[in-house]
Nucleic acid binder design. Structure first.
Lengths: 266, 266
DNA sequence: CCAAAAGTGTTACTGATACACCCATGT
DNA sequence: ACATGGGTGTATCAGTAACACTTTTGG
């Protein structure tokens, strides 16, 4: 539940979130983004931590009264990564009534000067938030992380995610699940990989999302047969010790596979 | 956006929705249910119409401040169909900022005595609602429809849906799309069909959702091969003129196919 | 010299698809 | 008699899955 560019009425040093004017927001609605990247042979997720919370959380934001939820998600992504027009899709909405009735929120308010319990109770931050989850696929190298004193932002290895704020671990799990379903219907990788990549990089993405090993020979054959990728006349040494061929996506065929369907289930 | 069982502060004859105490609700959040049934060889959707609206709409409801969104959806389904513990899944959240800023809502308030524009503007019904869409699969014959003077409820043939309130046609389309994706991964039918059914009934459901014809022979072979259904020693004349065999689901295998995945893509 | 990753090719088999013909019955 | 839906069987073809051996090079 993070900061945005809303004007402030009061100023609470070191806690941007309290500078937000609650009246300009759609009450009790937020968006959270699961931002996936790929680097060094590992799937990564972008997380942030506010100075006034102890746990990491998914980058999120509130929704303006006259703002569509998709626009709010775009804004959150742009704020945190600098990226626009990337793959960003809504996948699930989280609305357990206790999900944001958390002691850490109350503690944060106490720390920030709301000593009277009645004041805290009335504060717009203390209501239950229904949060709409989005997942994004971004090219790791293009993300510009800007950490400031209020907010720390970092990539985490998917295999090494800490315990997150509220139900954010569950949100991440659900995003992965959705990605798995999507992958069983259409390919993934275009948005995550650089222009030139090795077949191993692409395969690792599939393996990570599907959570199973794929035969490297059958995998390559299938991708080439589907026309999704084509081999370049270049080699690289990204992974092993031996040169390996570089590939690029055939954008046209890839787009076609996205809409027409494409099955990979080994 | 329909009625619920909330206590009223004021009473406005003939418009239950205005009897709802807005303070007990999560502001600006609602649920809408796309309830699918199957009858007479056709896929059906349950719609309702309130006396103070001209258009039909999807059965929906508001979310209590201390109520989970899934519980709200369960409640809406129970209210309209009498059914509990049926297949009901969230599929998408609709949050365009203009989606419920509609003249019909304002007109409804005028008709119900809110003559002062300022009063209407402040009314909790006039804000933008973010609506969480759920779809349900129910057994047609088990649904008990109870129409009253305020609310008319009826099944509509999927091929014959009128223009609905707000973006409800879009919500219905999206529900169908989601169902199509689900069907490409796991079977559907258990929740829609009676205990005993003919293979043609089952096939029609698949054809309707996938929007394409399936070869009846291959279809039956595949369902039997997967062990999803088994043939009974009974016959019926539901469809054609000739007796046809009745089948039942193998619940265990069906559940297994739901989780393990099952592909039908002819 | 060995481990780790990459390049290359073949085989077997399952499952999807596409058909053809006959049967039963209500109109 | 004929249209309509139901029952049964089969041939083909493509795509998946399983698998082995060699090459390269950094440590």
């Amino acid at each position: 539940m993070p900061t945005d560019k809303h004007t402030s009425k009061k100023s609470y040093a070191g806690s941007k979130v309290l500078q937000i004017d609650g009246d300009s927001l759609q009450q009790g609605v937020s968006v959270d983004c699961v931002i996936f990247g790929f680097h060094d042979g590992n799937m990564k997720v972008l997380l942030n931590k506010f100075s006034y919370y102890t746990q990491w959380m998914l980058p999120g934001g509130f929704v303006g009264k006259e703002e569509s939820i998709d626009t709010a998600a775009d804004r959150v992504l742009k704020n945190r990564t600098g990226l626009e027009n990337v793959y960003l899709k809504q996948f699930h909405t989280f609305g357990d009534w206790k999900r944001t009735k958390l002691p850490e929120n109350e503690e944060m308010l106490i720390l920030r000067g709301f000593e009277n319990p009645k004041d805290r109770e009335k504060h717009w931050l203390m209501q239950r938030f229904v949060s709409i989850g989005y997942y994004a696929l971004v090219e790791y190298s293009k993300v510009k992380i800007e950490t400031n004193e209020d907010e720390e932002i970092a990539w985490f290895d998917l295999k090494d995610i800490p315990e997150l704020y509220s139900d954010h671990n569950e949100i991440l799990e659900k995003a992965l699940y959705t990605l798995r379903i999507r992958l069983s219907i259409s390919p993934i990788g275009y948005e995550l990989l650089p222009e030139k990549f090795t077949m191993t990089e692409m395969r690792i993405i599939f393996e990570t999302i599907l959570q199973k090993k794929l035969d490297r020979r059958n995998f390559q054959r299938k991708m080439l047969a589907a026309g999704l990728v084509y081999k370049l006349d270049e080699v690289s040494k990204k992974f092993g010790v031996k040169d390996s061929a570089l590939f690029s996506f055939d954008k046209e065929k890839y787009e076609k596979a996205l809409t027409d369907g494409f099955l990979i289930l080994e």
